[in-house]
């Protein structure tokens, strides 16, 4: 299986995992181990203090041994997101940032205008921006023009478990940006959703709630790991084109090609 490349780094797993909503940090740790994820996202706005004092949770996140991708979850303006990103760079010593600018609290859909604004400023400031965006092509172009080398379109709204709501547009995005790493971020509810995104040629998936809130998060993490791997292998192998008629997999020599009574 080919390695995932993000901002010049080789990443061993194509499954990225969020760290929110687990019953305990211990459960989170076991889920991350089972998922094989190399990158975990951490919400900064909510969980962090502005200082490094008393950061018991951070210490536990660092013990995971994963690459931490801080995110700007909960930010509603470009300004807020930029400030959070700068705070994250200091706290975690990384230039990577998952950029979220939220337009609407009910759907948590990206504010694409604020997103482009923040991505432009952060990229110029030396950040490696991974923007959480919609499947909209024109926004994607603006983000790439702003300096984003990775795009993270949503599958469906965060936490909704709806899977890939607009497959046609996601497929278009994939075809339009053949070289840009594309990660489906948000809305993944089942391993089948993740496999589907990977089969379409997406480079990775990022998810949180589907694992954190599963009855058994550790088992679900493993399920997702296998689905992502299966989907990627299928993409690399090349999927069969769907057909309207059956195509026998065993040789048919000696049997008539047509049923006589249907040919008139």
């Amino acid at each position: 299986m080919a390695m995932l490349q993000l901002y010049g780094s080789e990443i061993s797993s194509r499954l990225l995992l969020g760290t929110a909503g687990y019953a305990s940090p211990d459960l989170l740790r076991h889920a991350v181990l089972a998922s094989g994820a190399e990158i975990v996202t951490v919400s900064l706005r909510r969980e962090s203090a502005r200082t490094k004092t008393g950061q018991g949770f951070w210490a536990l996140i660092e013990e995971l041994g994963c690459r931490v991708l801080p995110n700007t979850a909960g930010c509603h303006t470009a300004k807020e997101a930029i400030a959070t990103a700068q705070m994250a760079r200091e706290l975690f010593g990384t230039t990577w940032i998952k950029l979220e600018v939220i337009a609407n609290d009910d759907t948590l859909q990206p504010d694409v205008f604020g997103l482009v604004e923040a991505a432009t400023e952060l990229s110029a400031d030396g950040f490696d921006v991974l923007p959480y965006t919609t499947e909209d092509l024109s926004v994607a172009e603006r983000l790439v023009a702003a300096g984003c080398e990775v795009l993270m379109p949503w599958g469906s709204p965060i936490g909704s478990a709806r899977g890939l709501a607009n497959k046609t547009a996601l497929q278009t995005l994939r075809s339009y940006f053949p070289e840009t790493p594309l990660i489906v971020d948000a809305g993944i509810g089942a391993p089948s959703h993740a496999a589907e995104a990977m089969e379409m040629g997406y480079d990775a998936v990022l998810l949180n709630t589907a694992v954190a809130k599963a009855g058994d998060p550790v088992k679900m993490a493993e399920g997702f790991a296998r689905a992502v791997e299966a989907g990627r292998l299928a993409f690399e192998a090349g999927l069969l084109e769907p057909r309207d008629m059956a195509s026998p997999s065993t040789p048919v020599a000696g049997t008539p090609f047509f049923k006589i009574d249907t040919v008139s």
Partner: peptide, 13 residues
Amino acid sequence: SIEREDDGPVTLR
């Protein structure tokens, strides 16, 4: 339940 260790004032949010 916030993974933070300060007991400072409640934020507006």
